[in-house]
Amino acid sequence: MTRPRILQIGSLAGSPGADTRMREQYEVIELWKAGDRQACLQSAADVEVIVTTAGHGCKREVIESLPNLKVICSWGVGYDSIDLEAAREKGVLLTNTPDVLNDCVADEAWGLLIACARGIAHADRHVRANNWEGKRGPLPLGTRVSGKKLGIVGLGRIGLAIAKRGTGFDMNIRYHNRTPRNDVTYQYMNSLEELASWSDFLIIATVGGSGTQALIDRSVLKALGPNGIVVNIARGSVIDETAMVELLASGELGGAGLDVFDKEPRVPDELKKMDQVVLMPHVASATTETRKAMTDLVLANVEAYFSGKPLLTPVSNS
């Protein structure tokens, strides 16, 4: 029996064994390995399904090169790297992998928050460099986390998981969204500056894309202040990175825990030198359990399409 053909934009290397599982079930055209990209796309004219990731995305040229394309199945929750307008013009559906990564992303947000507040990364470097044994001065005092004020930008699935953890730390929690939610007890703040000014810690969990470009700008970061800590597990583009670096350097912003960056994998050198900053390489969902669940969901969406069943996690592209 002939296996359905799919086009895979890039490797699912973040999930060990995922590429092998894909090849076992489908005839996979591996675009990232093609020496002649255009010839590869031409050979895939009959393909109805694309598999990609939030990192690899899917550009207009790919979508327009596949006349029979019906579905793009993306490994990851974000889809700002996929040309939604091109997909909409061709009536191409999109799926992603929500919910299965909520807990691990929320866990890392809290890991970054605590690491910044208590200077864990700085202290680790201090010990590794034998500065403790050499009695080279005391470390700066950390900041208490329990009982503080937590602001969340983007109270979606992940934002809610972050807030839930905050209640375990007896925190006062407020949030900012495009619109208030009527199904939560957390207080809504209409102004980002007011939320930042009120907060001890500000966690960014909103979507990426043009609509949130530099949403957390200089004024918001200044409002957070010299004792405030910003944590970003959303997209690097959501924060004005230049302003953030300058404010951290001047002491007008207290600290930052960052899993994402504006031009990743490039990270501003200034951030690497700052002890009040904790850096991670965009790995908030990188646990064995979550990455397997993400791959399972991508494959389930592909299977649903070829079986004539409803897609499991369609993304609205209206």
Rank of each mutant, 00 (worst) to 15 (best):
S191N: 06
R5V: 10
L12Q: 08
D80F: 08
C104I: 01
E61W: 03
K148R: 14
A54M: 14
Q38L: 03
A18Y: 09
T206A: 15
D269A: 10
I229Y: 08
A214N: 15
I72Q: 01
A249P: 08
L311I: 10
E270D: 11
M1S: 14
T53Y: 10
R118V: 00
V28P: 11
E194Q: 05
K148S: 11
L248M: 11
Q42T: 14
P268G: 06
L224G: 06
T242P: 07
R37F: 09
G147F: 07
L41N: 04
G142T: 01
K90H: 02
A161V: 08
V277E: 07
L215C: 11
S11Y: 05
C73Y: 03
D36C: 04
E89N: 12
M1I: 06
L297R: 12
A106M: 00
H176P: 02
L311M: 08
Y188C: 01
G254W: 04
I29T: 10
S318P: 14
I158E: 00
L224P: 12
V298Q: 08
L312E: 11
T295L: 10
L139R: 02
E30L: 08
G151K: 02
P268S: 05
R5K: 15
S11M: 09
V100D: 03
K263G: 09
V71C: 11
G225Y: 08
A39H: 05
D259C: 14
Q276P: 05
A304D: 13
K59R: 15
K309D: 10
G211V: 02
G10C: 15
P265R: 12
G225C: 14
